[in-house]
Nucleic acid binder design. Structure first.
Length: 740
DNA sequence: TCTCTCACTTC
DNA sequence: TGAAGTGAGAG
């Protein structure tokens, strides 16, 4: 028999609700996103035996069924002989009883992140994908040892601005480009027990960042059911697509679920670490970041000054060219008695060209940021033990970072918080205003974290190695960068949720065979559950990927069409979005608030869930990513963050909300710093420049007493050539070297 | 500003 | 030994 969307499945049968069917008609907001009828749509049928069946049109059956074959490995039997996939009925309709847990998350390699944050927050993305640096690693505690968890990570837009690196500073350069389809990265070890997660550092180093819009390392799922915590389309992948010159904020999610199938209907605990915010670039703009990476990333070892890598050779090459120039200059002037001074000049340049000069440059960086000196020295010392040892050390030696932050100059502080969206108050970001019934309200936000300070004081094991003094010392700064957490508790309707899982498992079972348990290889596979609904004439939506530079509304259909073809081949364009559709549709982005702080896109919130989010709104208001009140209509759909509008270019380096700064309370110093950040950073840059200039000039000065007339001119020319050839010290900060 | 190639590295 | 991860640099 066929089901219409409104046909309820009788509770008590094998499926209380069909996985893909909401039990009620879509509300207004939901309706607004509809309007597209995909060319192909499989039909859903419910056979008499009560099991769900996936019936596909003949042309589609084969590829889809091929994808589903692997589902058998997950224990879900279905026939591969025909177009009907019989899915095993769910054992239970009730969610598992939850044992209270209290997850805490500690960001690993925090010092590295802090340095990263201070130096410019640039993260390189490439077409083929580039790993994150610093690597995103966390340590969890407070999990139920027996329970299973799924850990995820995603990266959301921090604001809707485009940035440029100008005068050694990151400045807003306009409105953001169309947002890329966001993807959720599921940790390959998921699901695992709390004990397993807590026994190790959870690293997401395999996640890659790309700017390749046609990246095929992702796939999309759609959950139209308004019973689900997830609603809309959900993309997964090993690579996250980002826009260059845009600011992003990684997020970490803990989901208590023993099966990937239950993911969409489970509670999400979301953690934000402000220091992990970054600006995506295709090439490093700020050599501080470059140097930081070279110093800390083993793969970049070849560029370290101490090595025999390319950098060394390049400098030797420079040296050689200088020598040639010197000889030629000698010939031209013909006097040998000047050789001593020339030798002095040469020595000067030789020195400048030697690795030692790079060290000078590095020291300049340290001079630039007094608070960095210690960190750099520390980083260098760690280098002796390798990056991994470095990271490991950071786990229990976070005290050393504190002086950097607390004793840092205002400039350093400003810089520290410059890229921190909203200058998140340490407490303002915690959402402890959950309503008592938050567990049952899809839009209710509740806190699951009390801040790292408390967490670390409490969590055993790792902290055992940390002295009480160290704990005390790091408490304050840690709080300053305490992860902003948000928890969504959505028990949902078990029938709908679990039933949806059936369909999910059928697909994920195949993916589980690959390297990544949940990532399909090698071909992308996009499953559109919504397309099923489309077929029923109830739900239609335009989803796709907006391409940068597109004029008008153009969509690269993903769900329906890719579903239709099974293996992701492109088909024709989908029709334009309905004129009255919300912004998210006009952009055609297939993303959803997947794991976001709200279970619904804010477009939904207004009509569908705003009422239920009343309890959360106060918290939301204080959260830069949740601020519905201050957000302005965006032309693009932002499935996750609700960015705080950047007031003006004069405060480009801080997106702090005044209210948040005011709410910072104990952070008043930092809040004040925030206000002064632009100027402070300017001073910062200036000081570095001065430092650099003095370094160069001091070298020259040692020559000048012996030089006269042509000699000085020649030396000057030498310097110019030297700069041109080797880039030397002025090069590091490309644009900085040009600033007065 | 981006993309590609290169030489170098780690694993 | 080769795949993969790096920044530099050319275009």
């Amino acid at each position: 028999m066929s089901l219409s969307m409104r046909d309820p499945v009788i509770p008590g049968t094998s499926m209380a609700y069909h996985p893909f069917l909401p039990h009620r008609a879509p509300d207004f907001a939901m309706s607004a996103v509809l309007g597209h009828q995909p060319p192909f749509f499989p039909a859903l049928t419910l056979p008499p035996n009560g099991a769900a069946a996936l019936s596909l049109p003949g042309a589609l059956a084969k590829p889809i069924m091929d994808q589903l074959v692997g589902a058998a490995e997950t224990g879900i039997p279905f026939s591969s002989l025909g177009p009907q996939a019989h899915l095993r009925p769910l054992k239970t309709m009730e969610p598992e009883e939850e044992v209270e847990d209290d997850p805490k998350v500690h960001l690993e390699a925090k010092e590295l992140w802090d340095q990263f944050h201070k130096r410019g927050t640039e993260m390189v993305i490439t077409k083929s994908g580039r790993r994150m640096f610093p690597p995103f690693k966390v340590r969890c505690s407070g999990l139920d040892k027996k329970a299973k968890y799924i850990l995820l990570m995603d990266i959301i837009a921090a604001d809707d601005c485009r940035y440029k690196f100008h005068n050694s500073r990151w400045m807003v350069a306009g409105k953001a480009d169309p947002e890329m389809p966001k993807r959720m990265y599921i940790h390959p070890d998921s699901p695992a027990t709390g004990e397993q997660w807590m026994s190790k550092v959870v690293t997401f180093h395999k996640l890659k960042l790309t700017n390749n819009i046609s990246d095929k390392h992702g796939f999309t799922l759609a959950f139209p059911s308004d019973h689900a915590t997830w609603q809309g389309n959900y993309s997964f992948g090993t690579q996250t697509i980002l826009n260059s010159m845009h600011k992003y904020q990684p997020r970490f999610h803990i989901v208590r679920a023993n099966d990937i199938l239950k993911l969409p209907y489970s509670t999400f605990r979301t953690y934000l670490f402000p220091e992990t915010e970054f600006i995506a670039v295709t090439a490093y703009q700020n050599d501080k970041i470059t140097q930081l990476k070279i110093d800390n990333n083993p793969f970049a070892k070849g560029f370290r000054d101490t090595g025999n890598g390319r950098r060394e050779k390049r400098k030797q090459l420079t040296l050689q060219s200088m020598r040639v120039f010197d000889e030629r200059h000698k010939k031209e002037n013909g006097t040998s008695d000047e050789s001593s001074s020339e030798q002095a000049a040469f020595n000067c340049f030789a020195q400048s060209s030697s690795p030692a000069v790079s060290t000078v440059g590095t020291s300049n960086l340290k001079d630039l940021c007094p608070s960095e000196g210690e960190s750099d020295a520390e980083a260098e010392s760690k280098e002796e033990h390798g990056p991994e040892a470095c990271d490991a050390a950071k786990i229990s030696t976070t005290t050393s970072e504190e002086p950097c932050r607390d004793k840092g100059s205002p400039a350093a502080k400003a810089h520290l918080f410059a890229a921190e969206p909203g200058g998140r108050p340490r407490d303002g970001g915690r959402l402890d205003k959950a309503s008592p019934d938050s567990r049952h309200s899809p839009a209710t936000i509740s806190s699951s974290t009390r801040g790292l300070g408390a967490e670390e004081r409490r969590s055993p094991g790792r902290e055992g190695a940390v002295t009480a003094k160290a704990e005390e010392a790091r408490a304050l700064p840690q709080e300053a960068f305490a992860p902003l957490t948000c928890q969504r508790r959505e028990t949902g309707r078990a029938g709908a949720g679990l039933a949806a899982c059936v369909g999910l498992t059928a697909v994920l079972g195949h993916w589980g065979r690959g390297k990544h348990p949940f990532i399909p290889h090698p071909s992308p596979f996009v499953l559109s559950i919504r397309s099923l609904l489309d077929h029923m004439g109830q739900f239609c939506s335009v989803t796709g990927v907006a391409r940068p530079g597109m004029t008008g509304l153009t969509f690269e259909p993903r769900e329906g069409l890719m579903f239709a073809q099974g293996m992701g081949a492109a088909v024709g364009a989908v029709g334009p979005s309905p004129p009255a559709a919300p912004a998210r549709l006009t952009r055609g982005l297939p993303m959803s608030p997947f794991g976001s702080l709200f279970p619904y896109p804010y477009t939904y919130m207004a009509a569908a869930a705003a009422a239920s989010s009343a309890a959360a709104s106060s918290s939301v208001h204080r959260h830069p990513f949740l601020n519905l009140n201050t957000m302005r209509p965006r032309l693009r759909y932002s499935p996750y963050s609700i960015p705080v509008p950047v007031p003006d270019s004069s405060s480009l380096l801080t997106t702090a909300l005044p209210s948040m700064a005011a709410a910072a309370g104990p952070l008043d110093g930092k809040a004040a710093t925030l206000a002064a950040s632009p100027a402070s950073v300017a001073v910062d840059s200036g000081s570095e420049l001065n430092s650099r200039s003095s370094t160069l000039s001091s070298s020259s000065v040692s020559l000048s007493p012996k030089l006269c007339g042509e000699k000085e001119a020649a030396t000057s020319e030498l310097q110019s050539i030297q700069r041109l050839v080797s880039g030397l010290e002025a090069k590091p900060d490309r644009s900085r070297s040009e600033s007065p």
